[in-house]
């Protein structure tokens, strides 16, 4: 069970557009809402109304600032969840067989009936995509809403991960990244989608689309560029210049 499949029929995953994400956290909330009441143990909160609230989330949105060598810095909102890696180290380290990657669609899941809560899979993940639930003692991670995407009891437009369905800015896309003709694969090709920490060799399925570069205004609006003042103002301009 904890050996990785040689290949998977599909490579289902997410494409996250860092250019479009506005950091509203709606995906975080919808993920928590769906996944606390469906697949596996709930996502518990501890001290929720106290001084130090904390809890389990499968998706979190960081905000970074990237500073180019010249010009203004760029703020980038950065949603992060399990990347459903092809070479998922979290699967092979698992001693109980709880952690596995599905042959049919490549989704990485935890069978909570087998998990002993040792936390080694979370240690092996470079992305911080797995969180051990403090109350239920089992490892929680993104399931790619496996209980939505194949669910024939819900309307067809809802058969995508909850975060994708919720995103108000259209920054999240879901599909088969193993099929070069799929919409998501075309999007990744067109926008030069990239992997997170490629140097660790995990081969993530999820891709990120880079933010478009900011315009570089040639001159700042606040600096006076030239003076065509005459008379008193010309003298004042000169005098102030000398100060």
């Amino acid at each position: 069970m904890t050996s990785l499949p040689q290949t998977t029929e599909k490579k289902l995953g997410l494409v996250i557009d860092l250019d479009t994400c506005v950091g509203c956290q709606a995906c975080v909330v919808s993920c928590k809402e769906w996944n606390t009441s469906n697949y596996g143990a709930p996502l518990s909160d501890v001290d929720a109304y106290g001084a130090e609230p904390h809890g389990t989330f499968l998706n979190r949105v960081h905000s970074f600032e990237a500073q180019p060598e010249a010009g203004c810095s760029q703020t980038v909102h950065f949603p992060k969840s399990c990347l459903h890696c092809e070479d998922a180290p979290c699967v092979t380290v698992c001693p109980t067989g709880a952690s596995y990657k599905r042959e049919e669609d490549g989704i990485v899941l935890v069978n909570e009936d087998d998990c002993m809560g040792c936390g080694l899979c979370a240690w092996s993940c470079p992305y911080g995509a797995r969180e051990l639930d403090e109350i239920f003692g089992v490892m929680k991670k993104c399931t790619l809403c496996v209980d939505r995407i194949y669910n024939e009891n819900i309307p067809e437009e809802d058969r995508v991960p909850s975060c994708v369905r919720t995103c108000p800015s259209g920054a999240r896309h879901f599909g088969d990244l193993g099929d070069p003709e799929s919409d998501v694969s075309k999007l990744v090709a067109a926008r030069e989608g990239f992997d997170l920490m490629p140097e660790l060799g995990t081969k993530p399925v999820n891709k990120y689309l880079p933010p478009r570069l900011k315009d570089q205004p040639s001159q700042s609006a606040l600096t006076p560029q030239h003076s065509d003042a005459k008379g008193l103002f010309a003298w004042l301009d000169k005098a102030l210049e000398k100060l």
């Binding site: 860092l18 970074f64 990237a66 500073q67 180019p68 060598e69 810095s73 760029q74 980038v76 950065f78 470079p126 990239f194 992997d195 997170l196 920490m197 490629p198 140097e199 990120y208 880079p210 933010p211 570069l213």
Partner: peptide, 9 residues
Amino acid sequence: TATGLGRIG
């Protein structure tokens, strides 16, 4: 490398 934003700065 973690964020892939090194392409910006």
